[in-house]
Nucleic acid binder design. Structure first.
Lengths: 197, 197
DNA sequence: CGTTGAGTTCATCGAGCGTTGAATTTCAGG
DNA sequence: CCTGAAATTCAACGCTCGATGAACTCAACG
């Protein structure tokens, strides 16, 4: 078993180069706007090589947006400490993620979620089954009103990402994290624990 | 002058049919996904006829998203009555617009704003120069902090539109307007008149 | 050295796109 | 009826795209 001879994976850098080129291209121009050919050019390789490594374009997109997100690593930081200051912790965590290289993947997912139904479904299912459900459980919210609270939180989070990272509307696009947290955290906090009637 | 003989514009219905087909197509599949050919098929005409009426595809898109929005008609309803209940009036006005046929144009603009830079610029400039600046002026807000307040309002409005009308995340997507107003209006109100530090 | 298989390139296919210009139909005015 | 302009269609051009499959390069191993 595992009798493997022949050339060894000499240049695994190429795969990474394609991935980062794809991430930037998807973030800059969306799923349709980013052509396999342009991604290959950005990585300095032949277009066919992209298919060789990642199969179809859809699979490449999945690898780009599915890799840098691991909810089980991020969520505890938000949930730990009870629900009294969850708003501030959520906004702060979100900003730290979106200001990192993983933010480009987020922009890519967001751009494409509004262009294709299957990416929208991808994002919706990721949000609901991976994020919101776990948060609800660990904060033991009232199951009757938890879904509404969760979608309200999603609305403010999505809107903040859109204005700050995609549309880049000033001054929110360049405001320091502390200012954003001070402004937005109370909104999230009210959506989670406040009175909604 | 104006000596015009020959056939009169006999079927102005066709033009409208193309416009509504284009609005639905742009809203459903975005700017790129909606092909001129599919729009023509949806209107029951030849693709060349679309160009005959609207020129290039970009101009057709402008006609679709530029027509049903007239800020001078909507803004007074939001601004009138001072800044004390502006949150509720803004959310209620927004819902009434997005639940009408004009909402499809909004979805189209939103979908495309995340796919192309020039539509993003279109939306940004429309928001800032047509909406936010007028609201700021008529509410005589402090010019020093008004831009930040305006972009915060934009973030919650954009996020609500995205969750409710584009991604259609439940239960916010189907919640009756009164519930949405009760939940979101205080957020807008605080962004306009509240303490942000 | 010769085989092997992964890395990489090349040429190409078929499809869909926006757009164009000429042809054809339709119909109000003279 | 006849003319001419608008409404509408037809056929085609040039382009880009995703994908495919055959060819070539080359390091590792027996």
């Amino acid at each position: 078993m595992a009798r493997r001879t022949g050339r060894r994976p000499g240049n695994p850098d190429t795969r990474e180069a394609i991935l980062t080129a794809a991430r930037n291209a998807f973030a800059d121009r969306g799923y349709d706007g980013a052509s396999i050919r342009s991604i290959a050019t950005g990585a300095g390789v032949d277009p066919a090589l992209v298919h060789h490594y990642f199969g179809t374009k859809e699979q490449l997109f999945m690898d780009v947006v599915g890799a840098p997100i691991d909810p089980r690593e991020v969520l505890p930081r938000v949930v730990a400490g009870g629900k009294e200051e969850v708003g501030e912790r959520l906004v702060r965590t979100m900003l730290s993620i979106w200001d990192s290289p993983a933010g480009a993947a987020g922009v890519a997912l967001m751009r494409s979620a509004l262009s294709h139904d299957w990416t929208a479904r991808l994002m919706r299912e990721f949000l609901t089954t991976q994020i919101l459900r776990r948060v609800m459980k660990q904060l033991d919210m009232n199951p009757r009103e938890a879904p509404l609270r969760a979608s309200l939180v999603a609305s403010q989070v999505a809107g903040l990402a859109m204005v700050r990272y995609v549309l880049k509307i000033e001054p929110l696009a360049s405001a320091p994290p502390d200012v954003v947290v001070a402004a937005v955290a109370p909104t999230i906090q009210r959506y989670v624990t406040g009175d909604l009637s």
